[in-house]
């Protein structure tokens, strides 16, 4: 089970960040998510696996310095 944006999502073997976002059915174009303390950016969504028992944060990236 993984925790994402306050929801419990069933974890499955080989689940990538892209898979997770698709499952959430959230149309917002996220550019960054954080898995526990590790930042993952959109170019890496397709090949970054989400570990079981992890906490995923959806980062609304509109600001810079």
């Amino acid at each position: 089970m993984i925790q994402v944006a306050g929801k419990q999502i069933e974890w499955r073997e080989g689940m990538t960040v892209s898979d997770l976002l698709a499952e959430l059915k959230d149309p917002h174009p996220y550019a960054v998510v954080r898995i526990n303390q590790q930042y993952v950016t959109r170019p890496n969504f397709e090949h970054t696996y989400v570990p079981d028992d992890s906490e995923v944060y959806l980062i609304p990236m509109v600001a810079g310095g």
């Binding site: 550019a31 960054v32 930042y39 950016t41 170019p43 890496n44 990236m61 810079g64 310095g65």
Partner: peptide
Amino acid sequence: GTTHLVTIMNDH
């Protein structure tokens, strides 16, 4: 602080 931006900027 703002150090999170380093890898985010790098990846993009």
